[in-house]
Write a protein that binds this DNA or RNA. Sequence first.
DNA 1: TATTAGTTGATAATGATTCCTAATTAATAA
DNA 2: TTATTAATTAGGAATCATTATCAACTAATA
Lengths: 141, 141
Amino acid sequence: MQQLEDLVSSLREEGFRITPQRVAILEYLLRTDDHPSAEYIHQVVKKQYPMVSLSTVYKTLDLLKEKKLVGQIEVGGETRFDAHTDAHINLVCMNCGKIDDLDENSLNEIQSRAAKKSKYLILNANFELFGYCNDCKSKFN
Amino acid sequence: MQQLEDLVSSLREEGFRITPQRVAILEYLLRTDDHPSAEYIHQVVKKQYPMVSLSTVYKTLDLLKEKKLVGQIEVGGETRFDAHTDAHINLVCMNCGKIDDLDENSLNEIQSRAAKKSKYLILNANFELFGYCNDCKSKFN
DNA sequence: TATTAGTTGATAATGATTCCTAATTAATAA
DNA sequence: TTATTAATTAGGAATCATTATCAACTAATA
């Protein structure tokens, strides 16, 4: 897990301005295990900095995506974000919408095998399993 | 790969009506290797049956998803469909938007391992690798 | 051939995301 | 510390994929 201070100074060195809005958004993403949507990030950050707008959240997320500081997956018509950038499986609960991460070493191996077989230049990966989480699955038996 | 006739009669047996619109959409999905969007399916099917509406395409896709006759992945804010329902990797070209399938036996194994570790009840899976396809990657060297 | 419930087509509504622009402000140097 | 300025922000409008609505139509059945 990256440290806030390191990320902030590397962004500053690249010429980006360090605004309270950006710090608040990054800070929240680093401390949570959730996979929040832009809308949800906005709700959370507004509690601390009520002036933050939703469009700033979107623009900050674009920046962080470009810098590979957050990953994204598209689920149910919305994009969900995650500061856990190692190769992992996203477990998506189709009932409550929760997303859990699960580390899985073999993904890197599959990825390089797929790159070789397909001749694609691979830049990014998403592995999603959809189902019901441990809390919800009892409701569907 | 399933046969059109089999799918049609299984739908009829379940009480669904067999309309020319549904047959045209299913027929196209079965014969293509593309991963078309709803909009694109509409364009294609309209050539043969000009009366088919986009909302019928969406409704038919909902039906086929529910019956597990097509899979879907969300990419770049739109949903793309695929009648190849075995476990496989989707290779998404970030330049031209093409999606290729790549069979990979080990996905089933990963999936059951993940189910055990996470205690999720797994119903569906998507494995996506993003990058540049063989045709496009030369443009980014 | 008549009945009827499932399906369709057209359009309106929704919701996530992007676009636009004047006002604000972080970074820099005097 | 203050002035300068280009990057950033807030807020609202615009966009685009998808869903909802409902009157008209039709596949299945008897």
